[in-house]
Design a protein around this nucleic acid. Structure first.
Lengths: 200, 200
DNA sequence: ATTTCCATGTAACGCGTTACATGATTGG
DNA sequence: CCAATCATGTAACGCGTTACATGGAAAT
């Protein structure tokens, strides 16, 4: 059977190139951390690998920007073949969501831990998720400028206008915020339940 | 630097053995699918590997139950060393939550897809998560009987009574349900937003 | 008749993580 | 002074997934 030539993370990189325009590997890492971290994370090493893979597939092109006293920026842009691949991917059923959360796992077996250990873990988790919630609410900071050049062949995206494009971005941001709020509510509730239990 | 001798999934198996009592690899797979799937999934091949690893560490013991016309059941139970490892794990800070969701990734770049493709993906996702929500609401079906034998050396769990143990189980179940509800609400909202957009 | 359940494993493979490697510039 | 930012890669490693392997009993 054929092995797939690309994976979700490949399309994550490709999608960012389609949406944000030409970007370097470094830029892509920033975007992953600030925009996609809620649904798919990536190490910088992996991003560079995906760029190499996609260059081999002809989905992206690379142009070298020379710089002094720093490594040259290698700026990647999506090709027509890349756009076709992105569209084709969109028409295949997505893999099911996966959640991996060691805190939940520890909570599940909380009865085998000293009560202080659990409380401490919950406290740390609250701090973490409060911070994330803040970050999601002001995502637009620290993002590379979106610079989508018009090509001679017409609009690069045949499916949506600039405004319509933002609908998706807003929807996904909303999800990230909803999720963090739900998680935090649960953490606070867990904290209360466990405190009550300790008093009795 | 030392490589860790165990991973979250190792402790998932270990915790189930501590909580549910002696279990076979097959039982453990059922429990993972019905109890832990919300926070950590596992293939059966991996469970058998973890059991092997833990036996090498002395964290579990195996007893063979002979059967006719079927492979023998190998029933594993946790050892005192295993309990110590579980408790020690509980006192270390948990790794941060990770979410991987290809649907969200596709939504992010929804402007590069034919609108019908997105709607179709959302519909399928709604069906999936409605089903999961139902499952979480009636989890206690299909579970192996919990059979925690009293040992000569006293209560197996020094931290919590039977009733207190269930608090954690209930808290985590509650989380799974909250999560699915939040996800579903968002999916329905996304559906509406996209339908409105198509009408204009 | 065919799917599901019971029951246990091995083998191949690669995505994703962590660590290694380098080095000038800027801000606190 | 020291940490962070900018900037790009390679190497090692293994967790986790998918596929392979087997086969009787029971249910639909």
């Amino acid at each position: 059977m054929d092995r797939p030539e690309a994976y979700p993370i490949t399309y994550g990189v490709l999608g960012l190139l389609a949406y944000w325009g030409p970007l370097s590997g470094y830029d892509l890492k920033q975007l992953f951390d600030h925009v996609l971290s809620a649904m798919w994370s990536a190490a910088h090493s992996q991003i560079y690998n995906e760029l190499k893979r996609m260059k081999g597939l002809g989905w992206v092109e690379m142009e070298r920007e020379e710089q002094e006293s720093r490594p040259d920026r290698k700026v990647y842009s999506i090709t027509p073949a890349g756009r076709a691949a992105l569209e084709s991917w969109q028409q295949q059923p997505p893999a099911v969501l996966q959640l991996r959360d060691e805190l939940l796992l520890k909570m599940m077996f909380g009865s085998f831990a000293p009560p202080e250990a659990i409380s401490e873990n919950i406290r740390a988790s609250i701090a973490l998720h409060e911070q994330r919630l803040l970050q999601y609410r002001q995502t637009t900071q620290h993002l590379p400028v979106r610079d989508q050049p018009r090509q001679a062949s017409g609009r690069p995206n045949p499916y949506a206008s600039q405004e319509e494009e933002d609908i998706y971005f807003r929807l996904v941001s909303r999800f990230a915020i909803n999720f963090e709020q739900t998680y935090l509510n649960w953490l606070y509730e867990a904290m209360e339940v466990l405190e009550e239990q300790n008093e009795e």
